[in-house]
Design a binder for these strands. Structure first.
Lengths: 330, 330
DNA sequence: CTGTTAGCGCCTTCAG
DNA sequence: CTGAAGGCGCTAACAG
């Protein structure tokens, strides 16, 4: 085994052709005589030649790489998305460079800069916040950007979202139809567009049903398990808490249910949830009556489709896709 | 905004220095006069210069990128690992290129080739199977490789594993101590080292306790939710199923519990689980009495540590790390 | 302290 | 159908 990797030159020398011909062969250019091609391929085989994609990228100004930026990597939503994106993009020869923004704009900015220096051909991102001004320079440089799940302001990019307001409204109306009149809201900060839209769907459904949205029955936290645990505990510490709740996402839902599991059975009797997200472990969420299922894999497919089109150079004004959700009864 | 990205040359021209000086400044080389540095930095600012990392990588023969290959991206274990790795590696300026092997060696081989062509500086992988012969050429090329969670045969690489046998044994012994004598095993294929080792821990504990491992009480599937659901159903379809089970991982556990949730309460009364993995939703796994918690974040940290050392060029024989697990009572 | 120069490995006209 | 040659943007000797 040779210490150093064979280059296109070594192959050329061995096959007694020029590097241009080797390049043509390995790139499947048709304008090469069959005999020459065979000689080149034999040399490739013999030397264990492997193309240096970095050199190729430098020459072509494109890397066949897309960046994926998310506020955190350890979330069910993110991983399903990443899997869907990988499936779609790898078919077309793209690799995925993942990075976490740790839920802050500053870190997001750094990641974007990094990706941009690495000449990624496109970026898919779940923005950490509503703020999108730091993405301007990216756009100016011509790198396609597709938002997914959430959207940031101040920058015109394609986006694949779900109908958060509609889904939340539907779920809340289902609780109302079940006869609940005192309904609480357990959710994430309104600064995150997803949480805000779901809150709006909730309040709209309440208003349409002639019900009051009581501040005392509303709790905002982050979108994490611990937050769900805490705000559920806070809620139940109140004198007369509601029996039904709309919950903003899966993690909050898990946290809230976890809290109730630490309490006695009598404490959770008569408590009912309607919640965003349907996960493999959803059947275990005993208090869940309604869940709003998001088409996560489809979001990944659509984002990949749009990004691929942009990377192919297809122009046009930004596409804003809002996919529907499905209400499930448990 | 200029149509084309400024290069080191544009900066050099504007600052009236050579490209070498610009290179020194942007690479924080100290041997540059303060006045010159300032002029260069001003030009960098004015032109919005951004280093082309692809060109840099070509020149240096290193990309500050590590590949992460896993059988699937959509698993809680994988995503926690990815997060931990990203945290550790990004500190040192490395980015992560993720790809899925879709649980097959052929696909794994393709991904490895891709990563290797992209000149990643190192690879962390959860092998899809025991087979590791296709990783030989990678090793020969000098790219450091660290296995995590599982290990493949036929190739000498560093590995970060957990004590699967010990953890499974401990959990099984706990069930025995609770008075159970008829204990079933719900698990993954023995061709996956993780499942095989846990099965061995289970049988060892049974043997040590003077108990029989009955084939009729043993079910192998994949390591997924659906598999857990199915094998639990199969087990309970038997005339006289056991009341206690050791379950090989979180997904199988969720699947098995999901199945029991579809059945009446009387059906699951008296059924108890001991299982590998502790997840945020674990409190919802009502039938779980004992769980074996894996230090996933620590595995990521250790893998990153080893990989960074290898990428720094530190030699030595492969390091095989086996981290301990923690038995938790529920 | 700064500049000149020679590539890293590949692609791509342009000739032949 | 094939070869020669000039970079892509950056770094690293080597001079000065």
């Amino acid at each position: 085994m040779n210490r150093t990797q064979a280059t296109i030159r070594d192959v050329a020398a061995r096959a007694r052709v020029s590097t241009a011909t080797v390049s043509r062969v390995v790139n499947e250019d048709t304008r090469v005589a069959a005999a020459t091609r065979d000689r080149v391929l034999a040399a490739v085989e013999a030397l264990g030649y492997k193309m240096n994609q970095v050199a190729r990228s430098l020459k072509k100004g494109a890397t066949r790489t897309v960046g994926l930026v998310a506020p955190e990597l350890a979330s069910d939503f993110f991983m399903l998305l990443a899997e869907s994106l990988d499936r779609e993009l790898s078919i077309h020869g793209y690799s995925i460079l993942v990075c976490s923004s740790w839920e802050t704009v500053e870190e997001e900015k750094k990641r974007i800069k990094l990706l941009s220096e690495r000449l990624v051909d496109g970026i898919v991102m779940i923005p950490a916040t509503d703020q999108g001004r730091h993405l301007r320079s990216l756009q100016a440089s011509g790198t396609p950007l597709v938002f997914i799940d959430r959207i940031a302001k101040g920058v015109a990019a394609d986006a694949v979202l779900v109908d958060n307001e509609g889904g939340a409204r539907e779920a809340t109306l289902a609780l109302v139809a079940d006869g609940h009149r005192r309904i609480g809201f357990l959710g994430g900060s309104l600064e995150v567009s997803v949480a805000r839209e779901r809150y709006e769907g909730f309040t709209r459904a309440m208003r349409e049903s002639g019900l009051e949205v009581e501040d005392a029955f509303t709790r905002f936290g982050s979108l994490h398990v611990e937050s769900g645990f805490r705000i559920m505990a806070e809620m139940l510490a109140r004198p007369d808490p509601p029996g039904a709740y709309f919950i903003v996402n899966a993690d909050t839902h898990v946290g809230a249910t976890n809290y109730l599991m630490t309490e006695g059975r009598e404490r959770r009797d008569g408590i009912v949830f309607a919640s965003f997200d349907e996960m493999p472990y959803s059947p275990l969420l005993q208090l869940c009556r309604w869940s709003v299922s998001q088409p996560i894999a489809e979001m990944g497919r659509q984002a990949a489709r749009i990004l691929l089109a942009r990377m192919r150079g297809e122009g046009g004004s930004p596409e804003l896709l809002r996919l529907g959700t499905t209400l499930l009864r448990h």
